[in-house]
């Protein structure tokens, strides 16, 4: 089981790098959807010895939300906006990849200072989570289309959940439901705003949204 967990985590990281390094938006969304599915499977393998109904429900919920529902929303948005590619990144794709690799390194460096509780499997969960969070932020920072930013936001959330999975036993169900709901509502409201922006500005380029400044 250890190997499956490692494999899934590596898949998460690869998905991050893929998003950082490629420009067709559809492919990026698919990569993030894949990442979501990998994450959804992770709890089943991370806590393999005590698979409970709770875990299964969580797993299904995550796969449904992150693997299908949110990507579906994003696909609809790019269809409405007739958008295919990320054309105006702030930095080039190669630079973004290099920075992403740097962030993975930083994630490991910080995680090295954080001790793992005894008996925890999969020692790379923490660095992967930290790296995913930072890479998600990097996507938001460097991409020019607000859709890509929404995508980055989902990656960021994925990173957080990667970490949250270690704790899944300690956290009560109520909170998890609330968290999932919040994320869904957040992305839903973001989607609505994106739609408004598209209508109001005739484009979803983040560069148009810089009228308010000093």
């Amino acid at each position: 089981m250890e190997h499956v967990t490692q494999l899934l985590l590596i898949l998460v990281i690869l998905a991050n790098l893929f998003v950082l390094g490629s420009h067709p938006l559809g492919a990026c969304i698919r990569a993030v959807a894949l990442q979501g599915i990998a994450l959804g499977l992770l709890p089943l393998f991370l806590h393999a010895e005590e698979r409970s109904v709770h875990l299964v429900f969580l797993s299904i919920g995550m796969i449904g939300l992150k693997g299908f529902l949110l990507p579906g929303l994003l696909f609809r948005a790019i269809r409405d906006a007739a958008l295919r590619k990320e054309q105006e990144p702030l930095i080039g794709f190669n630079t973004a990849l290099v920075l992403g690799a740097g962030l993975i390194g930083l994630g490991f460096a910080i995680a090295a200072k954080l001790p793992l509780p005894p008996g925890t499997a999969a020692s790379i969960v923490v660095p992967v989570a930290l790296a995913t969070v930072m890479m998600g932020l990097l996507v938001i920072v460097t991409r020019g289309k607000i859709l890509s930013q929404a995508l980055g936001y989902i990656m960021l959330e994925n990173g957080i959940f990667t970490f949250g999975l270690i704790l899944v036993k300690g956290l009560p169900g109520l909170i998890e439901t609330g968290v999932l709901l919040d994320i869904f509502a957040g992305v839903f409201i973001m989607g609505t705003v994106i739609e408004h922006i598209n209508r109001e500005f005739g484009s979803i380029s983040a560069y148009k949204l810089s009228n308010l400044k000093e």
Partner: peptide, 24 residues
């Protein structure tokens, strides 16, 4: 100094990221 608040939300988030990394 005022150029730091130049309207692009990406830069604003970059401050968040950099500040976070700095603190860590």
């Amino acid at each position: 100094v005022r150029d730091f608040q130049h309207g692009r939300v990406q830069f604003y988030l970059a401050y968040v990221l950099l500040f976070l990394i700095l603190l860590l």
